[in-house]
Design a protein around this nucleic acid. Structure first.
Length: 587
RNA sequence: GGCCCCGUAGCUCAGCGGAUAGAGCAGUAGCCUUCUAAGCUAUUGGUCGCAGGUUCGAUUCCUGCCGGGGUCACCA
């Protein structure tokens, strides 16, 4: 449990005591609004509660009066050394050295599990991310969603959810047919034909050349004599699996892994047509009808035709218009398939689903949430996190990309140039719903200006101090469980105490980040923690008495090494969630 | 035009309904070869886009404007 929820319970217990003494009753809903938080300004104390502000009015008291009464009870807590009523009626508590020493020891005994919790109660959560079309290698545009989705999944796992990481393969629509035709062209090329320019509308990238070669090796020139209707399914299958193995490699380079790769095509397998089932489920609830849609306001598409179609009544669940389930040729729309896919998740037992999508899918959010609510009868809920675009820069200059020529910057190029850690950290060093500037130069600098370096260096520095300590003082037992036994109340410097308080905030931060599904908070926290640690280290320059290793003061050294080790542990724990390495030395 | 996201220091951005709104860069002023370095310390700078509303309390929640971006049946 994090220390703030711990004290929240203590405050509630104190309220209970107070009210039963006085024979008063307070609405439970109000008690729920009582919270315990770190004060914005640490000078105000260690923990702060708004209890008196929230409850004074219904009790007909002034906040400060109620604060004094409550404070008298809280003062009896053995971990509380001082109570102050401040500002409009905040109750600020200062906690004992022994309490903080216990927090520090807990980090050392828990290791990187420190900060993890069981609040998720093993509830199944399905997190879908990447789901890039299997028509080419991953480019940088995919990469933010991949990293963000992966980190959200890790956050949920760290807070005790049963997480399934999933990738939806769009292998059923028209564009995989285009892929097949593009690959077929490369096949003819492999057979020696001069194919000239790749026609518009086909995929021009060189990455299909090996697919053409492989087709030649497998089929010889046999396919040339066939109709497209004959060769297309064969070529398509092989092209898709080639693309997927390329994508899996790209993902592996980025350190992103999925538990399930779910094929859109498999939704329609003989015997259990999930699409038909999902549509039927909606029909059973009276949510499917034949009707016409109003034309979109503003710019009217050239080929707009007013016709009757099969519609899902998504407006009943907050969507702006109803959505078609069948195309004019009678086949299912992509949306219908996607409903089926989410219906399948529902049938697999997921009641909480999260989709991480690019911001260009923003228009898709309401209808998909509506569909999940509808087909599950309100039992399941879908949350959609949108990621804004990434703009690439090189030393401040924008990197030009042209989609038409296939001249996109691929994910593997970026990873190769700047490294997995830099890509991952920077993708998370900004709120997901804000656009991101990514500069190749900055993220590879070994300087304070590069946040990746700065945070990793903090970890390396803790390892370095431990190595140095062993060299300077023999027979030190630096195992965390041993360091936890040191006299940690010797850490009396304000810088040291500040670091302990910051570390003790980690469990709460993990929980809040997971609830908000905002992994960038972890990245910012790590940056702050690294910054505080570097600053404290630098104090040792002017004040040698603050240095970690004092050979003539063994007990103090052990306490400080405990502090340093704990700090390394928290940094590692955070980087683990972000999927970034925590190196023991920088090169 | 509808919908979604964004608007906070000169720049890039943090900020779960709480107290005097923070950080980095840039600017300014100093310091500097240290347990492991790729610098350190201090400091200037704000009508939180505008106007209302809810609240004991609003940068945060709601509504309406203004400005920027994305998106808009039958592609996926």
């Amino acid at each position: 449990m994090n220390l703030f929820s711990d004290f929240e319970q203590r405050v509630r217990a104190a309220l209970h005591t107070l009210f039963s003494e006085q024979g008063r009753e307070v609405d439970a809903g109000l008690i729920d609004r009582v919270g315990v938080e770190p004060p914005r300004d640490r000078a105000h104390g260690d923990v702060s509660t708004n209890a008196a502000l929230v409850l004074s009015k219904p009790l007909g008291l002034k906040p400060r009066e109620l604060g004094v009464e409550l404070g008298m009870i809280l003062e009896k807590d053995e971990d509380v050394v001082a109570v102050e009523i401040a500002g409009p009626g905040f109750i600020n508590l200062r906690l004992s050295d022994a309490f903080w020493a216990r927090q520090l020891a807990a980090i050392l005994t828990s290791g990187t599990a420190y900060g993890h919790s069981e609040v998720g109660a093993e509830k199944p959560v399905n997190v879908e991310y990447v789901s890039a079309n299997p028509t080419g290698p991953m480019h940088v545009g995919h990469c933010r969603g991949a990293v963000v989705g992966d980190a959200i999944a890790s956050l949920l796992a760290a807070t005790g959810h049963a997480v399934t990481r999933e990738y939806y393969i769009n292998d059923a629509g028209g564009q995989v047919d285009v892929l097949a035709r593009s690959a077929f062209l490369r096949y003819r090329e492999a057979l020696g034909e001069d194919i000239g320019e790749i026609p518009r509308g086909l995929y021009p990238g060189d990455y299909l050349k090996p697919v053409g070669e492989a087709l030649k090796d497998e089929f010889g020139d046999k396919l040339l004599a066939q109709d497209e209707s004959e060769w297309l399914p064969e070529v398509r299958d092989r092209a898709i699996s080639a693309m997927m193995s390329m994508i899996r490699n790209d993902l592996a380079d980025l350190g992103v892994s999925h538990d399930v790769f779910y094929s859109e095509r498999s939704l329609r397998a003989e015997g259990h047509d999930r699409v038909a089932q999902a549509v039927q489920a909606l029909r059973d609830r009276g949510l499917v009808y034949q009707g016409t849609l109003p034309p979109p306001k503003g710019q009217l598409p050239d080929d707009w035709e007013d016709r009757e179609q099969t519609l899902f009544r998504s407006t009943e669940f907050g969507d702006d218009v109803d959505r078609p389930l069948l195309k004019s040729d009678g086949s299912y729309t992509y949306f219908a398939s996607d409903i089926a896919y989410h219906y399948d998740k529902y049938l697999r037992g997921f009641r909480d689903m999260i989709d991480v999508l690019g911001a260009d899918h923003g228009g898709y959010v309401k209808r998909m949430k509506a569909a999940v609510t509808a087909m599950s009868g309100g039992e399941a809920e879908l949350e959609i996190r949108l990621c804004q675009l990434v703009k690439l820069f090189r030393a401040g200059e924008p990197v030009r990309m042209s989609k038409r020529s296939g001249d996109l910057v691929t994910l593997s190029e970026v990873v190769e140039e700047v490294g997995r850690d830099a890509v991952r950290f920077m993708m998370l060093f900004r709120k997901a719903d804000a656009p991101l500037d990514f500069d190749f130069q900055t993220v590879t600098e070994q300087s304070k200006d590069n946040p990746v370096f700065y945070v990793q260096y903090a970890h390396a520095r803790t390892a370095s101090v431990r190595r140095q300590a062993k060299e300077e003082i023999s027979d030190l037992d630096l195992r965390p469980t041993e360091l936890a036994k040191a006299d940690l109340t010797l850490l009396e410097d304000e810088g040291e105490r500040g670091l302990i308080r910051l570390m003790a905030d980690w469990p709460r931060l993990v929980q809040l980040s997971a609830e908000a599904q905002e992994p960038h908070r972890v990245a910012f926290y790590l940056y702050d923690l690294a910054s505080a640690f570097h600053a404290h280290w630098n104090r040792g320059k002017d004040s040698p008495q603050l240095r970690f290793i004092k050979p003539e003061q063994r007990e103090l050294t052990l306490a400080r090494l405990a502090l340093v080790s704990a700090l390394g542990t928290v940094v590692r724990s955070g980087l683990e969630i972000l999927g970034v390495q925590a190196p023991d030395e920088m090169h």
